[in-house]
Each structure stands twice: as structure tokens, then as C-alpha cells.
Design a protein around this nucleic acid. Structure first.
Lengths: 322, 322
DNA sequence: CTGAAAGCGCTTACAG
DNA sequence: CTGAAAGCGCTTACAG
């Protein structure tokens, strides 16, 4: 066809504001898209990383009509090699799209290079590596959520008392979430002229078995601590400690609606949980791939989820994925 | 066809777990559904009731492919007759489904009777009349959101200071939202053993022009007030007053992310806004009708939206409808 | 490279 | 009432 004719046609297409019919298109094409996910293997059924999977499966179920299916791959959070071997399997499968949590930076970058060679679009979830050609990123703004934690704990804790920031299993924080939350937390106090408030940080690594309990207890006793900020979903560790040693009047803020965390929230051992709707993140990640790959629509590149403040009184309205 | 044959067929249908193809179905039927909405006319572009409409239009746009369209009808919140006349228009139109805010109980019930006679499904939004055969209800649990307000304000305000609950334009609260919020608020204090905290209530009716300002100022001065809970989106009235008279150290909680409310939140005149995602409510209301009427699926009857706690630090992640 | 034909899985008007 | 046929708006394999 001549270029000029092509232009004329496209002009008319535009004039009539022609919109292709997605229904007819997918029905006729009978295209069945396969998406692969590469996420950490949750240590238990209670683990955080089950939550995105719930959302992923929910959207997949809604899309069975469109012939969309998902192949899940999981890696061990303590073993960067397992990330690589699972990534290899995905490359062999040649899916139509990939969702990944870029836990290990180096291995993720290698994987992404291969995906690009194969022209397979990918979406980051939970954390991102900027400017690597991702279709989209879905996750929370960790620094900002640190600010929220700072504000809340400052309101809760007596002016003359100190606050301790606790990182559990920080060595696994390859994506800097915990550091960013801590930074945001400290920043809130300095920005709001609360220089008199003493802030301490305490890191507990995974290998410390039970000695960490004493470490925290000592810090609490010696420093007139009035509040705890746990930078991840392991806040139930701190809550257990508080219950065991009957520490009164400590105010606690942590992250994520794990069942045990919610229990302590309801018992008022924990005052607030900051939450990032992980189910919704999974749901949205699949939706991005679907809209882009199957429906060939444009999708937004960034998708920060809301920073939800959860307390005993509103938790029941957050528990389900709508 | 014989009953026995019918049963046999249905059995096989079940065995094979046959699922009709929605794509093919809607494509073939060429059915274009018309939904009518009956909502209050917002007094300005800033008004609360614009927000559900944003969500309604968003979902409608996504569904143009399915031939779904919406006919909006609005009534005057001060005039129950206008509700009736608009309802009449909808009955003449005979839409395939209706979304309504049952502002005026009597008129709503009459309208619903007619809808049922015509077998037109309807969804309540914002408030509901129980057990009237609605397809679904989408809205907030007002009592529970009152509890949330109580907890937050108790944390914010010095123990020895009193708190005042302010109802603006309460005469328009036909659905009892404001009363339920107040009840929840008071209930939080009694349930949590805070009998020493003095709570007052103040009602400002729409007709009071400017005299209400003195009324509130007097109450604040005479009662050692430390906090304000405004039970609806008119919290910016209170914030204006606070700015005008430079009232220091008053803690304020109100409702809904109106632009002016968000401004005062960012200026820290207001500490928290409790929000019910009105855009999402509109979006979900259309979605319910669509799934039930066009796709003939079952839908859930109740759909309480989350009770979001918004503060200066997380407000930017709530502003857009995702 | 181009264009006509068949088909995706349904619905619906129509002939028998 | 029943069943075969046409058609919804596309895609894709195929003949020319």
C-alpha cells in the first residue's frame, strides 16, 4: 500500500475515533497468554509473600476467560543462586510477561537483560531497579511510610521518652526498604523540630537465635524507652517479647497485616500497623501485564500503593481484598 | 424437552464445569445496558458528591466496549420533592439498573416500590435502607468510623482537656451518618474507660449564617477545649475559624478529602481526615450493576469500604482513584 | 504483499 | 416449541 493511502486511512481512523473492540479481538485471536512470577518463597503459610500471590491468583481467575494463566516460580530469600536458577527456568519457558521482586540486584539485572533480548515485558513488584526498561513498578514508597511512622509514634509516646527503631533480619533487606523506612522515620523528627526526642536504632540479624531478646530488653531498660518502631512485618517478635516480660506502656508501630500482627493490634500490644495492600499489588501487577500484553493498551509506569494506617478500630475493613 | 432429559443435560454441564464465555456472550448479544444514577447535586465543583461521579464515569468509560452507558439524574438536597420528580423521570426511562443515594426515606421507598414492579435492580450508595430488595449496598460503616475518630483524638488531646463534637448542617443528615459517627465517637470513650474526658456536642444548622462562629468560639473558651471532631466534610469551616482567630493547640479531626480539607491537613490545622474513598464507591456501584445485569453473575450484597486514616504524610497516596 | 474466507463462542430472529 | 442459520467484530491461515 502506498504511504499516502496509509496516511489517509489513518486520518479517517482518527476522525471517526475508531476504537478496536477488545471483546471481538480476544475472542477471535484465541491467544492464551502465559505470565511467569518470580517471588520469594514464604517460609510459612503466614508469611508476607503469600499475600501478593493471593491477589495474583484472584486476577488470574477473573481472566481465565481470556485464556490467561500464570506459572509461579519461587526462590529462597537466603540464596541468591536459587534466584538465578529459577530465572533460567523462566527464560526457557519464554512466557508472555514476567512479574518479579528484584531481591538480588546483580542476579535481577542479568535476568532482565535476557528478558529484554527476548522482548518479554516485565513488572517489578515490592521494589524496583530504576530505568531498566520495566513495563511498570508496583509498590510502596518506603521513605514516606517512615515519615508516617514517625508522626504516629511521636504522638503516642511521652515527650520525655526515647524511641527505638528495630530492624529484624536486616541482612535480607537487599532492596533498602528497611533503611528507607528508618531514614524517613528519623527525617520526620528532624524536619518537625523534635530534636529533643532521643532516637536509637537496633539491628537484629537472623542468626542471633534468642540472644536478641536480651539485647532489646537491655536497651529498653537503659534508655527510658517509650516506643518501638519495627521496620517490617516482624513486629510480632517485639510484641511477643512485650507480652512475655509484661512491659507496660510501650507504644509499638510495625508493618503489614500478618495474622499474628493483627492479633497483637486487637490486644492493643501494637498500636498501629502500616500497611501496603500486598494483595492489591499482586492483583495490579497481573492487571498491568494483561492490559499491556493481551489488550495492547498503555499502562502507567509507576504505581505507588497507598500507605494505610491501620488500628484496632479499622482493621476489619482492610482484611479482605475487595 | 422432557424434565428427565433436562436434568441429565444439567448434570453433564455440571460435570464438565461448563463456564459460559462472557466475551462471546456480550459480543453476540449486542445488548446495550443503560444505568441511571440518582444522587444529590453538588453545590459546587468542590462538593463531596462529585467524587462518586468521578468513579462512576471511570468505570463507564472502561465499559463502553460493552455498550454500557449511564444517565445521571440529580436532586436538590434541600428539596425532597425534587427527588420525587427525578425518580419519576428515571421510571419513564426504564433503565436496566439504578444507583441511588436514598436521601429521603419516604420518597426513596416509593421509588423502590416502582423499581421492583418494573424488575429493575438497584444499588444503594453512601447509605442504605435495609431489606428493601437492593442488589447491593456500597458505603461506609459510620459508627465504626466514629470509633476511629475517638481513638485518634484521645491520643492527640491532653488528658485534662475537653473535646467538642461539631455537626455542621445536621438537618440534612437524613441517613443518620452524623448521628452514628457521634455515637461511635462517644462509645469509644466509654468503652475504653475514659470517663474523665469531657465530651460536648454542638450542632450548627445551615441557616445560622455567621452567628455559628461565636457559638463555637464561646464553647471553646468556656470549656477548656483541646480538640474538635467535625462529623462530616465541612471540617474546613472549623479550620477557617481556627486560622481566623489564631486558636492555637487545637487538634482537629474531620472527614473526606475535599481540596480545602487537604490544604488544612497540609498546613497542620487539621491533624487527621477520615476518608471513605467515594470515587471507589461510585466505581464499585457501576461494577456491581454491570456484573449482575450484563454479565449475569452473582454479586455481594454488602460492600463496606475501608475507613482510611489520612494525615499530612500519606495524603498524596490517596488522592487519585487508582 | 493482498484480500476473501473461515472461525472464535455465543445470541437471536426466523422458518418449520 | 425446536433447531438451524446468521451475525456480533475481530484474527489468522490460506489462496491468489
Amino acid at each position: 500500500m502506498a504511504e499516502s493511502t496509509k496516511k489517509k486511512i489513518l486520518k479517517i481512523v482518527k476522525e471517526l475515533d475508531y476504537q478496536p473492540n477488545y471483546l471481538a479481538s480476544t475472542l477471535a485471536s484465541k491467544k492464551s497468554a502465559v505470565f511467569a512470577t518470580l517471588l520469594p518463597l514464604p517460609p510459612s503459610i503466614e508469611g508476607y509473600w503469600n499475600k501478593p500471590v493471593v491477589g495474583i491468583n484472584k486476577r488470574i481467575n477473573e481472566l481465565t476467560q481470556y485464556g490467561v494463566e500464570v506459572k509461579p516460580f519461587t526462590f529462597n530469600q537466603f540464596d541468591s543462586k536459587s534466584f538465578g536458577t529459577e530465572a533460567e527456568k523462566i527464560l526457557e519457558l519464554k512466557p508472555d510477561g514476567v512479574i518479579l521482586a528484584p531481591f538480588f540486584i546483580k542476579e535481577s539485572k542479568q535476568f532482565i537483560e535476557q528478558l529484554k533480548k527476548l522482548s518479554i515485558p516485565f513488572v517489578f513488584i515490592d521494589s524496583e531497579i530504576k530505568n531498566t526498561g520495566q513495563l511498570s513498578y508496583i509498590g510502596q514508597d518506603s521513605f514516606q511510610s517512615g515519615l508516617v511512622a514517625g508522626k504516629l509514634l511521636d504522638i503516642l509516646v511521652d515527650k520525655n521518652k526515647s524511641i527505638i527503631v528495630i530492624h529484624f533480619a536486616k541482612e535480607m533487606d537487599n532492596q533498602n526498604h528497611l533503611m528507607l523506612r528508618e531514614k524517613g522515620f528519623y527525617h520526620w523528627f528532624s524536619k518537625n523540630g523534635k530534636k529533643n526526642r532521643r532516637l536509637l536504632t537496633c539491628e537484629i540479624s537472623n542468626g542471633e537465635s534468642d540472644s536478641w531478646q536480651e539485647k532489646i530488653l537491655d536497651k529498653i531498660e537503659q534508655n527510658n524507652i517509650g516506643g518501638l518502631f519495627v521496620t517490617n512485618s516482624k513486629v510480632f517478635y517485639a510484641a511477643r517479647l512485650i507480652q512475655k516480660y509484661k512491659l507496660k506502656k510501650l507504644k509499638v508501630i510495625g508493618h503489614d497485616l500478618l495474622n499474628e500482627n493483627v492479633e497483637y493490634l486487637k490486644k492493643e500490644v501494637v498500636q498501629f500497623l502500616i500497611c501496603q495492600k500486598p494483595e492489591e499489588q499482586g492483583y495490579n501487577a497481573i492487571n498491568k501485564l494483561f492490559r499491556n500484553i493481551v489488550q495492547k493498551r498503555e499502562v502507567e509506569k509507576e504505581n505507588y500503593t497507598s500507605i494505610d494506617i491501620i488500628t484496632k478500630e479499622n482493621v476489619d475493613y482492610y482484611k479482605d481484598l475487595k
